[in-house]
Structure formats: structure tokens, C-alpha cells
């Protein structure tokens, strides 16, 4: 059972390319084939994984492993998920180190850096869009107030301005996260 768990999550880590949610189709497939957890449990896993610290993919693997075989299952599933990454990235890092001076590698990175930054920016934009715009109320006649989460919008502007101030600029990100949690508790967006 634990061996199967390791192999299945190794496969997930090998074939899921991208962010943590890319592992989702593989988890549905595991649910279908082994019945280790239900679709409802998977929905809970996504919600919990997105709102707890850590990488979403790792959180989901841990959760799925835990539902299947307790703490040992959680550890085995997570190790299975990260094993392919470790192997592939370490080989790739050695290759890159060797060919660092080639114009091919330099040229590739010349194009990759703006693309990489754009993908991160797009991820941030998507987070913001889904948080500020209430997509479920499009039907019928609604005022703008219903569609836009005004409180969250105001707070995001305030938070951005605070962060630019020289007194707060060099604070650790976790300070802003904790501060935002507190504001969330006080004003509940």
C-alpha cells in the first residue's frame, strides 16, 4: 500500500508540469482508480491547501496521503511527489552550469526572464481578480458595489501604499501577512 502510494505520487510529480494545481487531474485519477479519497474530500483538500502555508501541490499530496494511510501515508506521498523534481532539477543544474557561457543558454535566458516575470505577474493578477471581483453575481441587475469587493479593494491600495513607505519597506513579508490577517478579522471582507 505505501509502495503503491509512493509510486503513484512519483508519477504525479513526474507528469504534472507547473504549479500545484497541475497535480489536480492526477488526484482525480487516483480517486477514480483506487478510491483512496472521494471527490468531496478532494474539494476540501484544495480549499485547505490553498489557505495553509506551504506549496499547494505539497499540501495536497500530504493531505491525500494522510487520508489514505495516516501520517506515514502523508510522508510517503510527499516524498513521492518531490522525488522526480529533485532528480531532474539536479541533473539540469549540472548541465546548465557546464554550458553557462554558450550563446544558446544565454540567449534562452534573455527571452525567459521577461516571460518568467510575466507569468508571475499573471498569477498575481489572477489572485487579485478573483478576490476583488465577485464573478458569481453577474446575473440580473446588480449595482457595481455588489460586483466589486470594495473593502478588499480599499485595503489592497492601503497595504500597497504602506509597503512603499520607507519605515515599512524593509519589513519581512510575514509582518504584512500577519497584519492583513488582523485587518481581515476586524473588517471581514
Amino acid at each position: 500500500m505505501l509502495l503503491t502510494l509512493y509510486i503513484e505520487f512519483f508519477k504525479t510529480g513526474l507528469f504534472a508540469v507547473g504549479g500545484g494545481l497541475a497535480t489536480l487531474p492526477f488526484l482525480y485519477d487516483l480517486s477514480d482508480r483506487y478510491g483512496w479519497f472521494s471527490y468531496e474530500q478532494l474539494a476540501d483538500m484544495i480549499a485547505i491547501s490553498e489557505s495553509t502555508p506551504g506549496a499547494i501541490g505539497v499540501n495536497m499530496a500530504t493531505y491525500a496521503g494522510f487520508s489514505t494511510a495516516g501520517v506515514p501515508g502523508a510522508i510517503i506521498a510527499t516524498l513521492g511527489l518531490v522525488s522526480p523534481s529533485i532528480i531532474i532539477i539536479i541533473i539540469l543544474a549540472h548541465v546548465l552550469e557546464r554550458f553557462k557561457q554558450s550563446t544558446l543558454v544565454q540567449g534562452a535566458f534573455y527571452g525567459l526572464r521577461p516571460a518568467s516575470t510575466a507569468l508571475i505577474a499573471a498569477a498575481g493578477f489572477n489572485f487579485m481578480y478573483h478576490d476583488l471581483i465577485n464573478t458569481s453575481v453577474y446575473s440580473g441587475l446588480q449595482s457595481l458595489m455588489d460586483v466589486i469587493n470594495i473593502k478588499a479593494l480599499i485595503f489592497s491600495v492601503v497595504l500597497y501604499v504602506i509597503m512603499q513607505h520607507r519605515l515599512f519597506k524593509h519589513l519581512h513579508p510575514v509582518v504584512f501577512i500577519a497584519f492583513s490577517a488582523l485587518i481581515g478579522i476586524l473588517f471581514s471582507f
Binding site: 508571475i120 489592497s156 497595504l159
Partner: peptide
């Protein structure tokens, strides 16, 4: 309910922090 409210705030900090991080990368990326 308390945790739900806390996360409604944390979500805002997540994208504002990403925005800040992207601005830091901008100079060397573009």
C-alpha cells in the same frame, strides 16, 4: 468564522506581495 475572516485579509496581502516582488524583478527582467 474567525479563520475565514483572517484569510479574507491574508488573500489581499498575497497578491500585493506578489506585485511588489514583480516590481523588484522588473529592472533586471525587462
Amino acid at each position: 468564522e474567525l479563520l475565514r475572516s483572517a484569510f479574507s485579509g491574508i488573500r489581499v496581502s498575497v497578491y500585493i506581495l506578489i506585485l511588489q516582488a514583480v516590481l523588484k524583478l522588473w529592472k533586471t527582467a525587462v
